Computed example of a mutant assay.
Amino acid sequence: MSTPVTKLVSLSGELKGELVEFAQQPCFGRHLTARLRAAGSSGLLDEGVAVRTVDHFALQHRFHDGTTVVERFVAQRRPPLTADERAMLLGWRNVVEGLFEVYRADGLDGTVVLHNLIDDLHYPVCSNMGSEALTVLEQGMFTYGRIVPVHPATGHWLVSGYLSPYPQSSGPDVAQAALQMATANPSLLHRNSDLSRRAWQMQAEDRAAFIEVFGSDLVILAPATAQEQLTEHHRRRLEATASAETGGMSAADSSPGAEELGRLPEDYMQADSIGLIYDEAEGLNYYLDFGRLDTLFADPALAGDHTHIAHLRAYLSDDTVSPLPLRRLVQRHPDGADAVFRTLLRKPGFSWTHDGEDLLRSRKKSFFQHETVPSFSVVGERLAELLRTPH
């Protein structure tokens, strides 16, 4: 692709305007209105939040068929887009959201270099609103925002939505916010292979320590026992972290004590049992009344009991629960799986071997659309430095 970056940036402004207009069509109204209401639920919906919400909706919101607004726009746009235009728009799905430090702001071509404190990478960033749109950013300042590739064939990035600038003096507060973002959403660091590798290593070490305490990567316990052993697990890990020499800083380094880390939600403490599964890929997850499901798969005759089958139906229907617990139940009780699912689905010919994965892909679609990321976050040297800076 030989099109100059400046021309691509100019073209992006025209196409982004068309895309935003497309996203606000009446056919998407119900979905977009729900997103805007959710964004403003804690107070007034200011311009920056509104713009970012529409931007996220246009580029990342997935409908039940798995498609996004931008994908539908690319398919339906008339006259059809050129190959370069298609590649540009579809490349915008690769959104980087972060808190950035302005590393260099003297680009003669209107480009500023932003250092993402979360993934510890540098991005040369342009704006399709003109170079003056970035003049508010001075070296050493911070900003929160979203950027997308100008085009997959270039190394330049484009402001997508709205940038919120912060003065250089706000560094410690920005750093704390970046740490919270990284901890809440470890996928934000996946573009940095070194940080991602270290995060996977930390998860593997934590899983090994979990197995040492619990005896297995899957246990079913009474809530009080689970609470006690989780606290012990986190106590050991915090001691190990405090004594280890690391090249960076993990999110755990700024975490509370073992008791708070191991504290289960109140509704879990009221359950009959809790299933703890520490998967190699998905990390540690808790499951309410998992013992009831384990008993069901061990004795498929219980499928005739409404309580047991309704609990399984809830697990299968809940789009926040991954396929993991169902797969592990089948692994534990392979002889009971077919009978249980035949009753649940009212399909006498159902076979987990032949139909199980198709069932999961149908009912748990969102979990097959994204790459699995570690549940741990590791921060880079600059963020670690800012976190150590006194307020």
Rank of each mutant, 00 (worst) to 15 (best):
L302M: 06
P300Q: 08
H61L: 08
L45R: 01
T353I: 12
E14L: 15
S42N: 10
L238R: 11
A133Q: 01
H64S: 15
R388K: 13
E228S: 15
A339Q: 12
P167S: 13
E381I: 04
L344D: 00
A175T: 07
L261Q: 10
L195Q: 09
V113P: 05
L264V: 05
G291K: 08
L32F: 04
E71Q: 15
V70C: 15
L114N: 03
T111C: 15
E260H: 03
S254C: 14
D355N: 15
E21A: 14
P300W: 04
Q24H: 09
R235M: 02
Q176C: 05
L329T: 07
A153G: 12
T82H: 02
L324M: 15
D55N: 14
P374Y: 03
G336V: 06
H233L: 05
R292F: 07
I118P: 00
L296C: 08
M181L: 15
W352G: 12
A384C: 00
V54M: 11
A83V: 13
Q139L: 02
S216A: 15
Y315R: 09
P256W: 06
H308E: 06
M202C: 14
D120V: 00
V54F: 05
D335C: 01
G145L: 01
A314F: 00
H56L: 11
Y123T: 03
R382F: 05
R78V: 09
D318Y: 11
T307S: 11
D299Q: 13
L344R: 03
Q369V: 00
T372G: 02
V9K: 06
N94T: 08
L81H: 11
G155I: 03
L45V: 04
H151P: 08
A303S: 15
G356K: 07
E205Y: 00
G275M: 09
V49N: 06
E228A: 12
S187I: 07
A271P: 02
T68P: 04
R327K: 13
F367G: 10
D206G: 06
I118S: 02
R388G: 02
F73M: 04
E132C: 07
F28A: 09
R35D: 07
I274K: 09
A209Q: 12
A281I: 13
S243N: 13
P79R: 12
R263W: 06
R191E: 01
E260P: 00
L386Q: 05
S362L: 06
C27Q: 13
D305E: 14
F368M: 10
G107D: 06
Y268D: 06
T231Y: 00
T3Q: 11
V74F: 11
V379F: 01
F100P: 10
R313G: 10
Q76F: 03
A244Q: 14
Q270Y: 00
A244S: 15
N285K: 14
T241Y: 10
V125M: 05
L188S: 06
P165V: 09
H64Q: 14
S41Y: 00
N94P: 00
H233F: 14
R235K: 06
E101D: 08
T68N: 02
A178T: 02
G40Y: 05
A337H: 02
M269L: 15
R146Y: 03
E266Q: 12
V51N: 07
D338Q: 08
S160Y: 03
